[in-house]
Design a protein around this nucleic acid. Structure first.
Lengths: 195, 195
DNA sequence: TTTTCAATTGAACAATTGTTCAGTTAAGTG
DNA sequence: CACTTAACTGAACAATTGTTCAATTGAAAA
């Protein structure tokens, strides 16, 4: 048997990425085998190589796509206004973008060490770009005299760690909806850099 | 050949755990083989089984030991005084305990999913105990009327995520020493729950 | 209908995995 | 010195790994 009914590249391709993302988020990159992915997609292991040159590229493509989406979405946000307003926009944007993508966040956060050195450099660069956006806001707040941050780089990382940590425990259908979560986190972020 | 000069259980045992910790922190549990650990220790793979019943126990023992140390150290801390004072003590304790143990922190936070369900439950319980200590402080601050936290559970996790994130980028010999780091983080934690 | 070719199978490859264990060595004991 | 035994080796086990590729299938084009 080969090429079952309704089976196309257009269908299998995305399914490979989706399945790989889910399995890697659950078990980790090294713990997931190509046969395991293939099995859940419903094909043999060899068929996966129509969609990725190798396992490493599968991980890299997932992480790069996630970071590219993140940076594109951030650029699409209207960040005008004073520093406080920008910080609120950034905080709410971060939560709204990451909360519906728990698997992507998990993989992008946990599997950095599974990337080859060259691939790691690419992802790290994109991650740095994202951090820089927040740091610029903190710097502006310092200039405006509305923030009191001893070290903008450290504060940037502290805030992102706090926000990203949210994805590690928040699950859909919990007691708190996104709006409530946003309010709580924005309150803490705002105060943490306040005068 | 067997039992080389000066080679004892007292020496090899700790070296197995140390090496495993370092390798797992660097490459991940699933990506590190028993032969790799044995090779760095300087023995054959079979010799490892004098020190652990299996690979899973190796991970579990490391993580349980870390959490037990953490909880014991926390209990040894003098947490008397008002809520603000307690929060400062907790914050500084967390940083001082975790910063010198980057590998343990990394493994304990990244390899939860590599634990068997039973082992995971044990570690999760200990983690919860640690969180509860911080949450109790936040609750007391609410009672005292010196903290303004919308949701103590969420705030607890937000603070711990912020503090633990520090271990992901801080490296010894950087521009900032521990005292400076402590000051920056305590300032942000204090303000984040302030009125 | 016949032809075409993208999609997939299924088998094979060498390398590696965790784990076991009978045998070997040498440090410590008496 | 001889003896004991903890510590370790080295080989073996079956299972699994990522990856390749000739052969096969069947949906769509002609």
């Amino acid at each position: 048997m080969a090429r079952k009914q309704g089976s196309h590249s257009d269908i299998t391709g995305p399914r490979v990425l989706d399945t790989a993302l889910r399995l890697i988020a659950e078990h980790g990159f090294a713990a997931v085998s190509m046969r395991q992915i293939a099995s859940e997609v419903g094909v043999q292991a060899g068929a996966l190589y129509n969609y990725t040159p190798d396992k490493q590229s599968l991980l890299f493509d997932m992480m790069r796509a996630h970071m590219a989406e993140l940076l594109a979405a951030l650029r699409a946000v209207d960040l005008r206004g004073d520093a406080l307003c920008q910080l609120e926009t950034f905080t709410r944007f971060h939560i709204r973008f990451h909360l519906p993508r728990p698997d992507q966040v998990f993989v992008s956060y946990m599997e950095l060490r599974s990337l080859s050195p060259e691939n790691f450099a690419v992802i790290e660069r994109m991650r740095r770009d994202y951090e820089d956006a927040l740091e610029a806001i903190l710097r502006q707040g310092e200039t405006e005299g509305v923030f009191a941050v001893a070290n903008t780089r450290v504060a940037t990382r502290a805030i992102i760690a706090m926000l990203t940590g949210l994805s590690h425990w928040y699950r859909d259908g919990g007691a708190l909806d996104i709006a409530a979560i946003e309010a709580i986190y924005w309150d803490m972020v705002r105060k943490s850099v306040a005068l």
